[in-house]
Amino acid sequence: MNLVNKVIVITGGTSGIGRQLVSLLCDDNTIIVVARPSERLTKLEKAHQNIHVVSADLSESTLYKGLAQKIQQMFPVIDVLINNAAIQNTPTFTETHFNYDTIEREINVNLNAICSLSYLLLPNLMSAIENAIILNINSGLSLVPKKSSAIYCACKAAMNAFSQSLNYQLEHTNVKVLQAFLPLVDTPMTSGRESTKLTSKQAAIEIIKGLEKQSTINDIGKVKLLRILIALTPSLAKKLLKRS
């Protein structure tokens, strides 16, 4: 896909990987950024004439229909939907400070919003003159989970299955469903973790390369090695990822 003069929706576009995607794509395309209301979102819209913003808290599932309607009113035709927004809570269920109320919120942002927006914006994507793309930003943790972040890992695994199934459903349409599988990336979500991290910009560059190639599976960084490890010694892969 030639990423020029496209209408691209990006969720979670005010920080981390999403912000880098906006920066790299906004010069040649029209970008609609979906994110929680904030000063960053307001500044983002003023920063570039090709950037439009729609404020919404994706943890609130009752907002999805209204959000989609706002986008549809602005742009009846969409070329790319990038489901990038994600949150991760690390406490285990057995820790005293685990907050039960975070379960629904995490599932909404990490899975429900992806499924819902893919459905609600599908008519706009199918209206594209050429091929249209739904790109779901996934994680190596969808392949092998770790001990903490059980909800996050489960949502990412479900996203993997959802993406494959939806791709089957859209096989005879102009819409393709792609996934980018990321290793640990240096974002606000991973702040404080002492580990070698891919930078947000590096991750965004690799995501865009896969989008241009329309790669159904785009393994980035160490995820390539993880795939090999799973194939050769799945038990070792589980052991290594358990406490990652």
Rank of each mutant, 00 (worst) to 15 (best):
Q202K: 10
N136T: 05
K146F: 10
C153K: 04
F181K: 01
K156V: 09
I207E: 05
A161T: 12
Q214Y: 08
K176C: 14
A180P: 12
S163M: 02
I208R: 07
S195I: 15
L120H: 00
I133V: 15
Q202M: 12
L211Y: 07
L170R: 12
V185R: 01
N167H: 14
E171I: 08
Q202A: 15
E206G: 12
G192M: 10
I137A: 02
K156L: 09
A158V: 08
Y119Q: 13
M159V: 15
N174F: 04
E194R: 11
I134Y: 06
Y152K: 09
L117K: 00
F162P: 02
I114W: 00
E194K: 13
L170P: 11
T190R: 00
M159G: 10
S149Y: 05
I208V: 15
M159E: 10
E194P: 01
T187A: 02
S116F: 00
N108A: 05
G210T: 13
P145E: 06
L198D: 04
T190P: 07
S116T: 15
L135G: 03
P123Y: 00
N136E: 00
G192F: 02
A158D: 06
T173N: 10
N124R: 04
L141R: 08
E206K: 15
Q179F: 06
I133C: 10
I114D: 01
I207M: 08
Q164L: 12
L170S: 09
I107R: 01
K156T: 10
P188R: 01
A128N: 04
V175Y: 06
N174E: 07
Q164I: 04
T190I: 05
S139Y: 02
P145C: 03
K146G: 15
A180N: 05
C153Q: 07
L178F: 09
M189S: 11
K213S: 13
S127L: 08
K197W: 06
A128M: 05
A180H: 08
V175I: 12
A150V: 13
T199R: 03
V109L: 06
Y168V: 12
L120Q: 11
P188Q: 05
I129N: 10
S163P: 02
P145R: 04
M126I: 14
I137K: 01
A157M: 11
I114H: 02
A132P: 04
A204G: 13
I133H: 08
P123S: 08
Q169V: 07
Y119V: 11
I129A: 12
M126G: 05
G140P: 03
N160L: 15
C153D: 10
L135I: 06
E171C: 11
E206W: 11
A157L: 07
L120D: 00
A180I: 13
T199K: 02
N136G: 04
L121Q: 05
N110Y: 04
C115M: 15
